[in-house]
Design a protein around this nucleic acid. Structure first.
Length: 260
DNA sequence: ATGGCAATGTTTCATTGA
């Protein structure tokens, strides 16, 4: 089972890249964030032609998430949003793919520490903890994936001193991330030795990508049963190259079969 | 010290993102 997540910063702009990436990588599941389009404008026919069924929770201009599943893979129990957390913004969609509960999330950015958007982000993260605790109690194989908009550790930041206390790396955010782990999830990327300075997002400005001044803010968090079966987790930085890239790269985790 | 890029809307700049 190959599971991937990618913030594509407008599916309208990025559809050709998504189609190319699907053809080259053929994941079983691809979770997308920042579709930035209404459901009626979702390019379902093009993705179906590529061999993928889509479950979509979109909105105009901002946010929007989707779970794409390769033809022939079973999907059930699609759910949108977080129960008990009223939110105009379309940021969460979940589905059960084979036996794996996949929660695809676009965590709020938070703008700047102390802003109204930052307070919203912290409330959102607390609601996500409650949501994940419920999901972990229901599903043995649980994956919480997406643009989680938090760099959990100094090694996930190109210049931790400069970023100390800044949004995406502030202690309250990192503590919220830690509570997701406390809910029973592991950071699949850190199950393996990784090259230093591996990031998933680079600012479009300041030559950030060629200079590799990035952050690791896109994640695949998994329950213990999935962690045991996880054989790799990588970030495809090649997908950040070339003309008209997203500012994020995909994160890809592969899971072996469960022992009989 | 500052801003620098990109996408969207109904646009001629403001807003948002990270």
């Amino acid at each position: 089972m190959k599971l991937a997540t990618w913030n594509i910063n407008s599916l309208k702009m990025r559809l050709p890249r998504v189609l190319d990436w699907l053809a080259a990588n053929r994941p079983d599941v691809l979770c997308l964030q920042e579709l930035k389009l209404e459901d009626v404008k979702y390019p379902r026919p093009e993705l179906e032609a590529a061999g993928y069924q889509s479950h979509v929770f979109g909105q105009k201009t901002y946010n929007g998430v989707a779970i794409l599943v390769r033809d022939g893979v079973h999907v059930g129990d699609v759910a949108t949003g977080m129960p008990g957390f009223d939110d105009e913004q379309k940021r969460v969609i979940a589905a059960t793919v084979d036996d794996m509960r996949v929660v695809c999330a676009y965590v709020p950015n938070g703008q700047s520490v102390g802003s109204d958007k930052y307070e919203y982000k912290l409330r959102w993260c607390a609601a996500a903890e409650t949501y994940l605790r419920g999901a972990a109690a229901t599903f043995r194989d649980l994956a919480f994936v997406g643009d989680l908009n938090i760099a959990p550790e100094p090694r996930d930041v190109h210049d931790p001193a400069a970023w100390e206390g800044q949004v995406l790396f502030s202690m309250p955010e990192r503590e919220a991330f830690g509570r997701w782990l406390d809910a029973g999830l592991k950071d699949s990327f850190r199950l393996f030795d990784q090259p230093p300075k591996t990031f998933s997002w680079w600012d479009y400005r300041m030559l950030a990508f060629p200079k590799n001044t990035g952050l690791r803010i896109d994640h695949i968090l998994v329950s213990p049963s999935l962690a045991e079966r996880c054989v790799s987790c990588t970030i495809d930085r090649n997908a950040r190259k070339g003309e008209k890239p997203s500012d994020h790269a995909p994160v890809v985790a592969v899971f072996g079969p469960r022992a009989a």
